[in-house]
Design a protein around this nucleic acid. Structure first.
Lengths: 242, 242
DNA sequence: CGCGCCGTTGATGGAGCTCAAATAGCGTGG
DNA sequence: CCACGCTATTTGAGCTCCATCAACGGCGCG
């Protein structure tokens, strides 16, 4: 179950046997939650961090008028709130978009890892920095790309990230979220996202129907979105130190 | 010179004498650069990270049509690309908005710190996580706030962050950047930012003229922007471990 | 003095929002 | 099997916020 996480770590750096052991010893669970559940609430003191084993989680913030901005989507294998280890509380909520299975890493045990395994600590640090890189790319989308480009870009990103953990293969992947939730990622309204998805479909680029995305023309989609996977750090040097 | 950084760290956690020593031993410099200079280029291999001693730096990305999105503004005392330590290259450029003075922390020395000072490592990790929290808040602005709210929110954020390092006092602070650069933070055009700044001025909330911001009504500005400083983590428990 | 950058203001247009309603899908219970 | 209620999707019409295009003024600097 935790294999997806280790696989993702190994894509970016070497993880030794004792380090893998430490990771496996780190987490408790699994625990299951239904969809549409707030798993961690903004501001609440934390003493463990959540590793997503299966399903989709979203980081989001509410505004007083009921608007909501999703700032990140987590896929299986992601440490969803590892940043909470140093921040001590989150500035955002953590919501299950689908039924999810999670494991919990007590901060006391992460303390031990940071004391004993500097290299593994850097690997964990890396993963929070990768999250930040994704945040930055979303800022670019939200600030400068138009609606169809934003949608295309996010579809490219999700396919890339799901491929890494084996949650996508071929042209399709499951994305069992509503168009409204998709819109909440993109800073758009559900109505407009619907129109934009129709455009993508009619252009023969991609389809998003009944919880499944099918990419018909990945190259065309990337070109439309100006998608460059550099920010996903999919190819890395082996060892995270000089 | 590095005092601002240490002061900022101490706001969030305890830093012992030996740890302070390690920080002071970490950096080389200072080095000076003029304004409008790309200090670190996206994709280029890194072997040191930049501590901003004085001036303003921006993280930004370009799009093919010449549009640009600034994803973060760094103030004195910030580690501008500490995330580059684990990422090995940046996904964005780093630009001096003003003449800047920086120090460099060789990654080899950060390796030593992560080997020998787990607590200090957590403090550094915290600071990259704080950057990510700021990225998230910008995502909310870019995705869901309108033009005047975005401008108001960023002014609040900058004043808060500059107060921490003593680069603002009273109602005013220096922000020697152009309206166009300000617009590149906000996902707007320079023309529209100009109109919005006039609105803020006429409403008696804030002024941004000739490189100086004056906040006339901080409470009103916060209320307009729905500014909540929680995401800046200005009050923290003392020790970054369980 | 003249050039260039920045700030300022006006006029016009369009991408995306709002409001509204119709359709489709899907589980529930009769 | 069908009726139903609820939610998500889809489409239309009108409007708003912000972009675009354009022009002008101010100010520093060669």
């Amino acid at each position: 179950m935790i294999d997806k996480h280790i696989r993702k770590l190994r894509l970016r750096c070497e993880i030794g046997a004792s380090e893998e052991e430490a990771i496996r010893d780190l987490v408790q669970g699994p625990y299951d939650y239904p969809a549409e559940q707030v798993i961690v609430r903004r501001g609440e003191p934390l003493n463990s961090s959540i590793l997503l084993l299966d399903g989709l989680l979203a980081r989001y913030k509410d505004l007083s008028d009921g608007q909501r901005q999703i700032t990140h989507i987590h896929v299986a294998g992601d440490f969803a709130d590892l940043h909470g280890y140093t921040l001590k509380y989150l500035d955002h909520n953590l919501l299950s978009l689908t039924p999810v299975s999670i494991a919990r890493a007590p901060h006391a045990k992460i303390d031990e890892i940071t004391d004993k395994y500097p290299h593994l600590t850097r690997a964990f640090w890396f993963s929070t920095n990768l999250d930040a890189a994704i945040h930055r790319e979303w800022e670019v989308s939200l600030g400068r790309r138009n609606a169809i480009e934003r949608a295309a870009h996010l579809l490219c990103e999700l396919q890339s990230r799901l491929l890494v953990v084996g949650a996508a293969e071929g042209k399709s992947f499951r994305l069992p979220i509503t168009q409204t939730q998709f819109a909440e990622c993109l800073g758009l309204t559900g109505v407009h996202v619907n129109r934009v998805l129709r455009e993508l479909r009619e252009a023969g680029l991609a389809e998003f129907r009944s919880g499944t995305v099918t990419i018909h023309d990945r190259a065309g989609l990337e070109s439309l979105a100006e998608f460059d996977p550099l920010y996903l750090y999919l190819q890395m040097p082996k060892r995270l130190s000089a």
